[in-house]
């Protein structure tokens, strides 16, 4: 009961911020929410299930390009374009997952990296359909059931996207499915011996999280009303990976903290060190892996542990 209240209060608070922010701050806030949504689903795939995949932004791109192409180039109603884009994400993710989850360890990373690069080449060379290197611009979110979502109300949609992703993945995390994912991450052979269907669990995880990435991509498509290839390339995947490592692998809290920190840090660091903030990110990642594998989430736990009275131990 109290949990539900906290959830509702948090969603209302996060939405209320949208109504007091100015133009530039709104833009920053919206992108941050999308980064958090992507970090949450990537955390489940990479942190909880242990699949090192480089395709997360490619699937965000499939969602974004899918919905825009279906609705503006093919003229489908938004609802159908939305469902179509999600279905396309799920389908492609499934097709990628079935053969590539069979691959051991870093071979999955190579296969998904090849897929991600292939996607970038295709949207760059897609001619009129994808708009080539310039991407697609000059479209906007149509009204849904007579409702025109714009301004702060669109930011509220993004808050709900983050909340929905978090709720779904939390529930999954605490279910037998989440435990199966962790068991596979720790030792696939032992997990299989315990009666877990390793292949099926891996394919479901990959398909589900990649579709969630597609959903975030769709949300991104209507924040700037512009989509172009570089956004969905490798650079952002690295950043996403770094967010999870610095935040704390396998912890939703870590994904949120990592995404907020690494997304906002350049705004403060760039005036001081210029482009050098990326060197700082690289050093942070190496230090996190070496000395703080539980990431910032682990530090937060330790901080809270110090505050709590030591009654049980």
């Amino acid at each position: 009961m109290i949990r539900t209240f906290i959830w509702i209060a948090a969603i209302i608070a996060a939405s209320a911020i949208a109504f007091v922010l100015g133009g530039y701050a709104t833009d920053v806030y919206r992108k941050m929410l999308i980064w958090i949504a992507l970090a949450l689903s990537y955390n489940f795939l990479f942190g909880t299930a242990g699949q090192v995949a480089f395709s997360h932004f490619a699937f965000a791109g499939v969602g974004a390009y899918g919905v825009v192409i279906l609705s503006t180039k093919l003229g489908l109603p938004f609802g159908i374009a939305f469902i179509g884009a999600m279905a396309l994400c799920a389908l492609i993710a499934f097709i990628v997952a079935v053969p590539s989850t069979r691959l051991e360890g870093f071979y999955l990373a190579l296969a998904t990296l090849a897929f991600a690069q292939l996607f970038t080449v295709l949207i760059n060379e897609g001619g009129d359909l994808t708009g080539g290197t310039g991407g697609i611009a000059g479209y906007s979110l149509p009204s849904i059931f007579g409702l025109q979502l714009r301004g702060p109300w669109y930011t509220v949609v993004l808050v709900l996207l983050v909340a929905g992703t978090l709720l779904l993945l939390n529930r999954l995390d605490n279910s037998s499915f989440g435990r199966a994912c962790r068991a596979i991450r720790e030792n696939p052979a032992v997990a299989a011996a315990m009666g877990i269907n390793v292949r099926r669990t891996k394919v479901i995880t990959f398909t589900l999280t990649s579709t969630l990435a597609g959903l975030a991509g769709i949300a991104y498509a209507y924040t700037d009303n512009v989509i172009n290839p570089p956004v969905f390339g490798l650079e952002n995947v690295f950043l996403l990976l770094f967010m999870i490592i610095v935040g704390g692998m396998g912890r939703p809290l870590g994904a949120v903290v990592g995404a907020i920190l690494l997304y906002l840090a350049p705004f403060f660091l760039e005036p001081i060190v210029g482009h050098g903030y990326l060197v700082i990110f690289g050093i942070l990642v190496v230090l996190a892996i070496l000395y703080q594998p539980a990431g910032l989430a682990g530090l937060i736990d330790r901080g809270l542990g110090l505050l709590r009275p030591r009654s049980q131990s």
Partner: peptide, 21 residues
């Protein structure tokens, strides 16, 4: 074994951005 692979991704970024600087 994924830990050193990920740490080396961090090294990758450190090297590239240092060259850029």
């Amino acid at each position: 074994v994924t830990s050193p692979i990920l740490a080396l991704l961090g090294v990758l970024v450190i090297f590239r951005e240092t060259l850029t600087l």
